[in-house]
Design a protein around this nucleic acid. Structure first.
Length: 1043
RNA sequence: GCCCAGGUGGCGGAACUGGUAUACGCUACAGACUUAAAAUCUGUCGCCCGCAAGGGAUUGAGGGUUCGAUUCCCUCCCUGGGCACCA
């Protein structure tokens, strides 16, 4: 027997697969297709690392499994090779990036092969190949033609170290995603892709991705950040020193189109003076976006962002312009992080001499400029409603601006009305109360918890449980008699915060005293304790009630002092106590109670002085004809009345140009006469010129700008002198459509053939990292949706299932990094243990989507396992039985274990639970290694393990004399009958505690099992002389004797 | 602050729709083989009490539902990730 020598056999089989073209995917095969995609790597000088290994191994295992299941599997790979490291390397060593890239690709490819990956190399793509980026440029031109690629000057994120602009998605915590340098804002001419035009479609599309993880969808959803609201125009009025109106939007309501230059990123309308000299025609309005048009009557001032053009446009009218300009400049000098820091106190300056007119109240309100309003979102201006917005509230407090409440915090909610012991009658004041509260807009719930004379708190709570979700911070809870302790227990148990709590006659003389006496309660106080079954945590209850707690107690003669004291003492914090006012349980008290309640409810509901902004929905007050409406209704009505309903997204347009060399040139020509002209399709690709110097200029121009021979061209339209666009595309361009190229990588005529798309698209599984959720994954969905709209691709969504992976941490639980010196290099692991060990150990670390830690010792266990299997398999093959295989059978144990293994591994692979599949191989081998196994069964075992350890299994398989690759072996099927054991272990519990185990015939009856169980010493002892009250029997699993 | 994911022995982790918690692997310990070591093989191995038989507590903490909870419900704590003055 040869020793297991992974390096030798792995090379051998890698060569074999390559020669036999084992993994080449056939277009239009009759087999059902599966498209398994992994994010293609950037070929860096350091080679591929653990971060690549995880998805690639998973994809590989899964692909090999699917092929055996009879699928035509496309598992392609390529290179996302544009990017800064290659360019920086070029700057340092003056070697063209394509040369270093080619070298890195060669290394990475060798690495991938050494891992035993089953990629179809015949479809390899490279984003830096002109034959590839020709089509990237071509797609860009499609965007351009559709008006979705545009040029504009704007304040963008700029990385001072990389000397290039960045997309919003590339800025993490105010830092450059690539190098960690703090990003600054820079005014630059840029190309943008109008991803915002697809915001709604991208959001909608998520609904059609049921197989995507919720976390990924949520993250994209939050990133897109949709909010529905209204756009409302506020008129501006300018007064002279004497106070007379010299300019008003009421007289001049001329609108001017927005300026693309000043605000390219959204399609907001900005009003500008039509006459730059700024005279009588300075009529203008301030447009705001708000999600709360229902609060417009409370808008007591306005705020515009420092970048808002209004300030400049009204320069001559702003009396304190100097102060305003200084403030704006101070703000500009701050970094984004400083500016948006939440701890920072609010700052701002009033625009003196300017007033806005609140279209609802018609009042003149001041206009401020403050940095808490962002130019990038909405319209860059807000109506400030301090009463109902936390930020406005804070600002108003600081600058002493008026705060007007226009929404009564939503008392409109649910009322829980709880009756006492004999609930049948409910109480005769209940209907009165229900009516009153319903009229105020409450939903009244009065569940029937009829105790029939035996108050049982648990039963009551169970009845109440189904209403627990309806009770919230705006609710009133009213408990009468036993309903009072019930209410308290309900609040405690479900930790319900409510607004008001009213307790009426907390106990009652008509209560079932017999019951209390039977339960040895001498006093009502004790009775309450008994009924409650747990003592009340008064402190907690006080926390749960935000507003008033009112106690309506009976006449002293009817209610023992002890009970009243209990409530009064413990609830006093915010309690109103009303007593000696009658007997509320009977008709005699009926008159007084409504009066009292009226008083309390009215005072409780009346608006308190605002200590903080109340942001929740409610009922409108002080809002003219809208008063009385609920917020939700009011939002719609008032949006239409004062403006129009609109939608805003947090998503920004995609800054799509980089001021660097190593990227796809943007195929655009600037002509003095014709303006921006697309490079004609026949002239594509626009190739990168050879240059000496790759150094970025840092001025915001690409190094390409310096190459005159390349820059100067003839205009394709008028043949006059023109210049090429010198910006290049961002890293994310090439990867935004690469999966479409794999299916048709060599096509010269089209970027991706639609017939081939019909066979292969969509991608069935896409393995990749969580870090790309709002970058590549969003971008590529955008491109795909666009191409779909252009009729160029066949499905709306590119990926059916996204499978993210957790990161692999170093053994010390920290992230692997060179500076920590804890990096595990997969190359070295392959050298030391072999690729198959690596391929089995990596999934064995833990679930694919979970973060896991690498353990140098742990991998030894997997290698030992392979060594043992190697020896064992060789022994089986060379045993005398092997020679004459006919009529020989596995032992029963082996047969059963094998079929269970087939089931387990098949299910695990289908669900991509690779870690438990590996364990099950080990379990199987541990269990049957002493038993006799046939060659056929050994083959089955090898077939199951093949996706994980392909070289190892191929080698052993070939020792049988098999000429074919195991890849062509059919995936084993299990016999369902063999998976079921005829004898099962049944656990015997007494009162839920395990006392014994019985080995018993499958599907035995309860009586049989019980009889057997009672014979066991341990069980007998546990049961003793007690009577068995109940028996719970779960067939073939467990019997529980309750005594 | 808001939104996700997670918390199980000395460690990585198992446990299907509530039904034997700790599978599998690592580490550690003991034994066999060896002149010896490594490798390999065999066995033991979560915690507390006990010589043992056996008993007790235990899946971040507290509470609840249930005959029975790692699993369901409520509250709180911790870790990781995302968003964050988004009107």
């Amino acid at each position: 027997m040869k020793k297991y020598n992974p390096l030798q056999i792995e090379k051998k089989w890698q060569k074999y697969w390559q020669q036999k073209k084992t993994f080449v995917a056939k277009d239009f095969s009759k087999n059902p297709k599966k498209y398994v995609l992994v994010e293609f790597p950037y070929p860096s000088g350091e080679g591929l690392h653990m971060g690549h290994l995880r998805p690639y191994i998973a994809g590989d295992i899964y692909s090999r499994f699917l092929r055996m299941k009879g699928h035509e599997v496309l598992y392609p790979i390529g290179w996302d090779a544009f990017g800064l490291p290659a360019e920086n390397f070029a700057i340092k060593h003056h070697i063209h990036p394509s040369i270093s890239t080619a070298k890195n690709i060669k290394n990475a490819k060798a690495q991938l092969e050494s891992w035993g990956t089953s990629f179809d190399w015949s479809r390899e793509v490279n984003t830096t190949d002109p034959d590839y980026y020709k089509w990237t440029q071509w797609i860009f031109l499609k965007f351009f033609e559709a008006g979705l690629a545009y040029e504009a000057t704007g304040l963008i994120n700029w990385c001072p170290k990389d000397k290039t602009g960045l997309a919003n998605e590339e800025v993490i915590d105010g830092k450059c995603d690539r190098c960690g340098t703090v990003v600054v804002k820079k005014e630059l001419r840029q190309w943008y892709l109008k991803i915002t035009a697809y915001a709604e479609k991208l959001l909608e599309g998520l609904k059609n991705l049921p197989e995507w993880p919720e976390a990924v969808k949520l993250q994209q959803e939050n990133w897109i950040g949709k909010s529905v609201g209204a756009e409302i125009d506020f008129g501006v009025i300018v007064r002279s020193a004497k106070g007379e109106v010299i300019l008003s939007s009421r007289r001049h309501s001329e609108r001017v189109q927005p300026s693309e230059e000043s605000h390219p990123q959204s399609n907001k309308e900005i009003l500008r003076p039509s006459d730059a000299s700024g005279t009588q025609d300075d009529a203008m309005k301030i447009k705001v976006f708000t999600t709360r048009p229902d609060t417009i009557f409370g808008a007591t001032y306005m705020v515009v962002a420092p970048e808002h053009p209004l300030v400049q446009n009204l320069e001559s009218r702003i009396k304190n312009y100097g102060e305003v300009r200084k403030y704006i400049e101070d703000v500009k000098s701050e970094t984004e992080t400083q500016r948006t820091s939440l701890e920072k106190e609010k700052t701002g300056v009033e625009l003196k001499g300017i007033k806005a007119i609140n279209p609802a109240t018609k009042e003149e309100i001041p206009v401020w400029v403050a940095d808490y309003v962002l130019w990038g979102y909405g319209t860059g201006a807000i109506m400030a409603v301090p009463a109902h917005d936390e930020r406005d509230f804070e600002f108003a407090q600081k600058f002493n601006l008026p705060i007007t409440q226009v929404v009564r915090p939503q008392y409109v909610g649910t009322v829980l009305l709880l009756h006492g012991t004999n609930g049948n009658g409910k109480n005769n004041w209940f209907p009165w109360l229900s009516e009153k509260l319903s009229a105020l807009g409450y939903k009244v719930i009065s569940p029937d918890m009829n105790d029939q004379g035996t108050p049982d708190l648990n039963k009551r709570l169970k009845v109440l449980e189904k209403y627990k979700d309806e009770i919230n911070e705006n609710s009133l809870v009213i408990g009468y008699s036993l309903g009072a302790p019930t209410a308290l227990q309900f609040l405690m148990k479900f930790n319900k915060k409510i607004r008001h709590l009213f307790l009426v006659a907390p106990t009652h003389p008509d209560m079932d005293w017999e019951w209390y006496r039977d339960n040895h309660a001498d006093s009502p106080a004790e009775a309450i304790q008994k009924v409650s079954q747990a003592s009340l945590d008064w402190e907690k209850i006080r926390d749960l009630v935000a507003g008033t707690t009112a106690l309506f107690s009976d006449n002293d003669e009817h209610i023992p002092l002890s009970v009243k004291d209990l409530y009064e003492r413990d609830m006093q914090a915010n309690t109103v106590v009303l007593k000696n006012k009658g007997h509320f349980g009977t008709s005699s008290g009926l008159k007084e109670l409504p009066e009292l309640m009226d008083e309390i409810i009215d005072s409780a509901i009346a608006s308190p002085v605002l200590a903080k902004a109340s942001v929740e929905y409610g009922t409108l007050i002080n809002s003219g004809k809208f008063s009385g409406l609920g917020s939700e209704q009011a939002i719609e009505k008032m949006a239409k009345e004062f403006g129009k309903l609109t939608v805003q997204y947090k998503l920004r347009d995609w800054v799509f140009s980089r001021q660097r060399y190593w990227g796809e040139p943007i195929p655009i020509i600037h002509c003095e006469k014709c303006g921006i002209v697309a490079v004609p399709e026949k002239d594509l690709p626009v190739k990168l010129p050879e240059v000496e110097n790759y150094e970025p200029t840092g001025t915001g121009e690409s190094p390409l700008a310096a190459i005159e021979t390349w820059v100067n061209v003839k205009c394709p339209k008028c043949k006059g002198p023109a210049k090429r666009e010198t910006n290049t595309m961002p890293q994310w361009a090439g990867s935004s459509w690469y999966w479409l190229r794999y299916i048709d990588p060599k096509d010269k005529k089209v970027f991706s053939d639609k017939k081939k798309q019909k066979y292969w698209i969509p991608v069935d599984v896409y393995f990749g990292g969580m870090e790309h959720t709002t970058l590549h994954l969003l971008y590529s969905r955008f491109w795909n949706l666009f191409l779909y709209d252009q009729g160029l691709v066949t499905t709306k969504e590119p990926y059916v299932l996204r499978k993210p992976h957790g990161i692999i941490l170093a053994a010390d639980g920290e992230k692997m990094s060179k500076s920590r010196g804890n990096v595990v290099n997969p190359n070295e692991v392959v050298k030391k243990f072999g690729a198959d060990t690596l391929r089995m150990y990596e999934p064995f670390l833990g679930p694919h989507e979970m973060t896991v830690s690498w353990n140098d010792k742990g991998i030894l266990g997997v290698r030992r396992f392979l060594d043992r299997v190697w020896v064992w398999a060789n022994e089986v093959i060379s045993s005398p039985h092997a020679k004459n295989n006919q009529g020989v059978k596995d032992t029963e144990k082996v047969e059963k274990a094998l079929h269970k293994l087939i089931k387990k591994v098949t299910e695990d692979l289908e669900n991509m639970r690779f870690n438990t599949a590996v364990s099950s191989f080990m379990e199987f081998h541990n269990e049957i290694k002493q038993d006799f196994i046939t060659l056929d069964s050994l083959k089955t075992f090898l077939a199951l393990m093949y996706p994980f350890a392909p070289h190892f299994c191929e080698e052993l398989y070939s020792l049988f004399g098999n000429k074919k690759s195991l890849q062509e072996h059919e995936w084993p099927k299990y016999n369902p009958a063999l998976v079921i054991d005829q004898t099962v272990d049944v656990v015997v519990q007494v009162n839920g505690k395990v006392k014994a185990k019985l080995s018993i015939k499958r599907d035995s009856s309860q009586d049989e099992v019980k009889a057997e169980a009672l014979v066991v010493e341990q069980v007998k002892k546990a049961v003793g002389t007690s009577e068995i009250k109940r028996v719970i029997y779960v067939p073939n699993k467990l019997i529980n004797l309750v005594i």
